[in-house]
Amino acid sequence: MAKTILAVDDSVSMRQMVRYTLQGAGYTVVQACDGVEALELAKESRADLVLTDVHMPRMDGINLVRELRALPDYKFVPMLILTTESSQEKKVDGKRAGATGWIVKPFNPEQLLSTIAKVI
């Protein structure tokens, strides 16, 4: 069965780009526009990987990761943060919240896929 990826980004174009790339590679993609929506969707059905932007309204990516990690279902689910921040700070924040790793924007489809292939 195709692996399900929960892609979270407040930008429609980024979401579409991510979805297009991932679906093309055979993944099932569930999309959310912010942390709050993502958390709801995540509770409804378990994703095999969570890919989230950092800066989003309502709930940002770091908090989303933290909230998800607290759920028994998501204890070991890989979570990647998508960020333009190349600063160590955001990465450390992400790690602390429980993120598996990060993808630094900009990335091209191949980079996205190869990074995802590392974790699932």
Binding site: M17, P57, P106
Partner: peptide, 23 residues
């Protein structure tokens, strides 16, 4: 924060779609 987020998204998207000068 809202202003920053908007700028941030534009930068991220521009870079991803290869509009380097905009980014």
């Amino acid at each position: 924060n809202t202003i920053f987020r908007a700028a941030h998204s534009i930068k991220g998207g521009a870079a991803t779609f290869g509009f380097a000068e905009v980014a």
